[in-house]
Design a protein around this nucleic acid. Sequence first.
DNA 1: AGTTTTTCTTGATTTGAATCAAGAATGCCA
DNA 2: TGGCATTCTTGATTCAAATCAAGAAAAACT
Lengths: 199, 199
Amino acid sequence: MDPINALKAYYQQLNPSMTEEDWHFFQSVQRVRRVKKGEMIVKPGEVCNHVSFVAEGLVRYFYFNEGKEITADFCPENCYTSEYCSFLTRRPTMDYLEALEDSILVEMDYEGMQSLYSRGALFERMGRLIAEGLFISLSTRNSTLMTKSPEDRYNEFFEAHPQMFQRVPLYMIASYLGITPETLSRIRKRLTEKAKQNS
Amino acid sequence: MDPINALKAYYQQLNPSMTEEDWHFFQSVQRVRRVKKGEMIVKPGEVCNHVSFVAEGLVRYFYFNEGKEITADFCPENCYTSEYCSFLTRRPTMDYLEALEDSILVEMDYEGMQSLYSRGALFERMGRLIAEGLFISLSTRNSTLMTKSPEDRYNEFFEAHPQMFQRVPLYMIASYLGITPETLSRIRKRLTEKAKQNS
DNA sequence: AGTTTTTCTTGATTTGAATCAAGAATGCCA
DNA sequence: TGGCATTCTTGATTCAAATCAAGAAAAACT
């Protein structure tokens, strides 16, 4: 699908009352960008200056802690990615956004976003809904990490994103689940053995 | 200070362009509520229907996990408290909001908030800024819990909220820091011993 | 196809915090 | 002010996951 059409579909769902005129204005601040697998979209020290809709491909958000990389989020096609804290606060990030596959992004920069907001309530509402949605996602993820066991977290992830196992190495999933690759490997072994017994 | 004035000061800082007319409308959807120490403002099973500005007192947000209570947040005077996920999604919460001291709240219900939003861009922006602020706070807290050691988390909390130690029992701070009371006690012992050596 | 690099698995050991247990200190309120 | 409840501390033990180590498997490159 054409990246702009994918984006349009996304926003029509988010806000059905968007007129063609609104859309036209919205589109005027968007830029399509192609990135190669392995390319860093954002790097530590930079202020994240874009929010990027992933029209095609896969992006991950990660950082280093004590020398080890921790995956904070995966963003496959049809979702938005950004280091939104840095974007909002205009302060340098410590984190990375990396294309895990060749990807097509539709990007809007900070200035463009402000010009949308100054255009009126419709875009303000859009920004509000996006921030609210991010808050809800982060709360949910938080709660999972704090209250569920590694095995439960694995199962939950497996239910929700089975395709991810074809697209990213296990060690990235491990760090996303807050465990080491070794622990993930053992969880998977335990589960397949359990599955064998029940057959 | 009068609770409504405290709230007004809060919003004037958040949005200096608010006119007296806006403020008047805003105020029309607010209700002052007094709660006693120990009172539950929100309980599991309820849909959280308010956002509450704490004009005086102290509220904590907590939940149970495996029989143990976990404090997710403290909200002292001049901040907003709510189970905002439940509020936004209109789904029942699993969590508690509890007054840790006799408190005065200025509350706005969901309907009131929608009526503000439908009034125009100013209030949409306000809602957006609030959601963005919550997202930033939660991200920061998340990052602290995931990357810092218990001792670092304690020191950070102690720097940021020294007064809290006079207002809440240590076991609540322990669970806020993601550790048991025993572990907190040992951290404090270690730190005071370290302090003694340096004197 | 063969070589190198990356990723994954498995076992042995360590470790930091949780749990269990019990007593001390503090606060509350009747 | 005495007594009960809550909170805090300290020590002993357990435990789940991390770390360390090494080899197997898979993927990527030439």
